[in-house]
Design a protein around this nucleic acid. Sequence first.
DNA 1: TAGTGGTCTAGACCACTAT
DNA 2: TAGTGGTCTAGACCACTAG
Lengths: 219, 219
Amino acid sequence: MRTLVSGMAPGSPAPSERELVSQFGVARMTVRQAMDALVVEGLLERIPGKGTFVARPRRTASAITSYTEEMARRGMLAESVTLLARREQAGPGVARALAISEGEPIVHWRRLRRADGAPMCLEDAYLTESLLPGFLHAQLPTSLYDALEQRGLRPTWAEDSINADLCHGDEAGHLDIDAGAAVLRHSRRALSGDKVVMVSRSVYRADRFTLWVQIGRDA
Amino acid sequence: MRTLVSGMAPGSPAPSERELVSQFGVARMTVRQAMDALVVEGLLERIPGKGTFVARPRRTASAITSYTEEMARRGMLAESVTLLARREQAGPGVARALAISEGEPIVHWRRLRRADGAPMCLEDAYLTESLLPGFLHAQLPTSLYDALEQRGLRPTWAEDSINADLCHGDEAGHLDIDAGAAVLRHSRRALSGDKVVMVSRSVYRADRFTLWVQIGRDA
DNA sequence: TAGTGGTCTAGACCACTAT
DNA sequence: TAGTGGTCTAGACCACTAG
């Protein structure tokens, strides 16, 4: 069904409901229900009396994006250096956030994120190991979100918390700023459906990074 | 239809579809469509094989909220002191954000926001005066969003930007923190439909405030 | 086993748009 | 006037839940 829409240009007309009825030999209500799903997803747009059309993509601001995607949107080149990638046992905080038991095996992945060559952010990601068998033994992926997607665990939504702080001494060197400079601390709990897929804590250089959020409108 | 749900406790069962069919003498598809709307709105929840139930209110994180509402959600008492409320001419930055011409009259409203008695945030709100005739001559409202709502200008969505900074000297006294302490700077462009209704810049004490955002899921 | 929601059929009439 | 989506009817079978 969605293949009918996949490659079409925004604004171009979709087949009419009655057309699909005769084409597939199903009832019109059935066609409507199938199309309803695409309308809700924002792929189709119905105009009474005129027809059904491929919708213009809605604003993508509040969609969940990876660091790489986010920097691409800013026209910056994203790079990452892995500082640490190992198996650990979940401490109390991470265990609670991941909705697992304390002491269960997790993957801890720390990366320095660069943008246009200069440090932007220091990120610690924590993942439930049992969801990602063999993750550390294979080559580490370029994009964590892509790797999750390949396992059917693409985050569909996230709970983020953001606050301001002063840069700690142990972070300053990595970020190439002075201790005491302003930083933005960003925590994310990323979920795929009901499953907590990843928890992360990031420290962004405030002089290079402003977070943009769109609120109260579809993604 | 929605009166069937209005006063009911979350989790309590709604009448079954077939029950409503015989009660109202309509077809089941009709009942389903009416209920579908409520399900999409998040008022009802269907559980196959069990029934339809009044949904627990979904997380409201990505709905646009006022300061007062936000603090209430944190269980804190919100208060505001007006530091400045006057007519000004739009400077270049505010004019662009409000989508008006430079020099057009605006309302500038500066408030110190308190929570549980202590300073939390310093907010400068800018509004297009022509949208709010007589705003400054009447008594200033307790809630800006309520005042906008009464004029049919309740913000339905907003573009926010958030970054970290160090507290400036002129802000420190109001916020009762030291200059150089970490603060969260929050800018908002609030829209009602296509109309820009308000632009604001806020400075939050980082030691008292963490922003929570939910991304990629309905409000 | 009875009741529930999920899905589907094969029609129907309406308001609206375009020609 | 023909075609579109919006809504509705009066059934039907299915998978699932619960007693």
